[in-house]
């Protein structure tokens, strides 16, 4: 028996919004410790990793490890049937070929039950090595989304250069060039407005705008985003999922000239 109940059901809807443009189908690995998803996009350029801790749920039970392969478009359609303040429960029997989504209104006066067929997915699992990143940039997630959107008008790539002066985002194309520089903030009223740069050595890497823009679909999950960079290693873009976990996007840098 698997059962996971989330009073802040809205978080699950936001997680789906954050992955459904990048992934069409994926497996949710359910274990005693929580729920994880790891999948590459269709082009195998990026990797998405979602981690939802068991203790973050209001009720969590997983008697046996369970892999639930899901069509994420279908899962998203079902979650769209819930209201933003609904309590969401996911439920499956051991060895079941369906999963149930139960939506309860806060007053408990409306309860909806949706069942979805599970899929057998044969997906490659990748090992992500422990890395001490040369630069870790923490910044407002809305600002990052804005920069990615704005610079996408100039070219298909964004160059991210992190140095002790700050972080510079650049793009170049037919219409001209664009540069956005952010310095570390000295003092802010709200912690979520801060730009914090932890740099061991300067790093400059180039990334495809298309993927960065898809990662920013996670912006509603968290007011802050962290970007971890290291020479010749994939970028990690990480958003917290409320108090219950995090979503990480890994993107291979563009190489050569």
């Amino acid at each position: 028996m698997f059962e996971a109940r989330l009073v802040h059901g809205n978080l699950l809807k936001k997680v789906l919004d954050a992955i459904k443009d990048l992934l069409t189908e994926a497996s949710w690995d359910c274990a005693d410790s929580g729920i994880q998803l790891q999948a590459m996009d269709n082009s195998h350029v990026s990797l998405v990793s979602v981690n939802l801790r068991a203790e973050g749920f209001d009720k969590y039970r997983c008697d046996r490890n369970l892999i639930m392969g899901m069509d994420l478009t279908s899962m998203s359609k079902i979650l769209k049937c819930s209201a933003s303040d609904d309590i969401i429960t996911m439920k499956a029997q051991d060895n079941a070929d369906t999963v149930s989504f139960i939506f309860e209104s806060p007053s408990q006066e409306k309860v909806s039950d949706y069942q979805m067929k599970l899929m057998n997915l044969d997906q490659d699992h990748l090992g992500i090595p422990e890395t001490e990143y040369a630069c870790v940039i923490k910044m407002p997630s809305g600002e990052f989304a804005r920069i990615c959107r704005d610079l996408s008008n100039f070219g298909e790539n964004i160059v991210i250069a992190c140095s002790k002066e700050g972080v510079k985002f650049s793009a170049a194309g037919d219409i001209g060039t664009a540069n956005v520089k952010l310095a570390q903030t000295s003092s802010v009223d709200k912690e979520e407005d801060a730009v914090v740069i932890d740099m061991q050595e300067p790093v400059t890497l180039t990334f495809a705008c298309r993927y960065l823009n898809m990662f920013t679909k996670a912006t509603p999950l968290s007011p802050q985003v962290s970007l971890s960079m290291h020479p010749d290693v994939p970028l990690v873009v990480e958003y917290a999922i409320g108090e219950i976990g995090q979503i990480q996007y890994f993107l291979a840098p563009k190489i050569g000239d």
Binding site: H44, V45, V233, D257
Partner: peptide
């Protein structure tokens, strides 16, 4: 132009 490698070039299956 720069080339786009796949993510599996960096992360081994496991």
């Amino acid at each position: 132009a720069k080339k786009q490698p796949t993510i599996s070039k960096f992360f081994a299956p496991g």
